[in-house]
Amino acid sequence: MATLDELMRLPAAMAAFEFRGSGELLDQRIAYPERINETTLDLLAHMCAANMSIATMQARGWEKVTAMKGFYPIQEFTLVGFDWSVVVSGFRREQLKSEGKTSLPPFMGVVLGNEKADYEAAFAVLEGREPIS
């Protein structure tokens, strides 16, 4: 599982954070406190938790209606803002659920500057596929 410090090593990482499924911010790392603070991350975590839930519901419904598979469960939700993006993941939670585990880790997220953002690298680190050096 990715750590906050690993996420902060992604290109253009501005902040990394952990949050509950209900949205509460649990822990964070912030590279530029003058540009992004804990209060902002807390609201962002709540936004991301809500959007993960909505996207998961939509993916579930979409698969039932269309018989297309491969959308559900949602692994990552990404909000692309004007200059920054935020990528959040519940991948490890889903993996543990599928293994029958009931004790689940928090959701994780990273805020990236758009110009150098590498979304695929962010997915890989959040999913634990690629440890970042």
Partner: peptide, 20 residues
């Protein structure tokens, strides 16, 4: 909460599933 945040205005979003 944070005026002039780089997230505002949102440009778009993505949902990433296992295959799509």
């Amino acid at each position: 909460f944070q005026p002039r945040s780089g997230l505002q205005p949102p440009r778009g979003w993505m949902v990433h599933g296992a295959d799509y």
